[in-house]
Amino acid sequence: MNALRYTPGDRVRVRAAFPPGHVRTPYFVRGCDGEVQEIAGTYPNPEELAYGRDGKPDVPLYRVSFRQSDIWDGYTGPADDTIVIDIYEHWLEPAE
């Protein structure tokens, strides 16, 4: 297992990628910036498991927090509202 690339508090950007197959990163958050809140362990890669393979090597999973107003144009709720999404490491890159 390689060292984890991110630690809690790191600013990250979700890759703006749009592959046609099975992935677990919601469309609406791709390209958005957030902050790593917690490391949630490592798991077999679902993008491999989905096609009948063993999912190795395991991939780290992060709980990433986003401000709602950074995701949605014209979010109508208070500025402090957030959304936390579980995102695998290979979907994250350092934020600018």
Partner: peptide, 8 residues
């Protein structure tokens, strides 16, 4: 079966 295969 795996959950991810089922989802796919």
């Amino acid at each position: 079966l795996s959950t991810d295969e089922l989802r796919r």
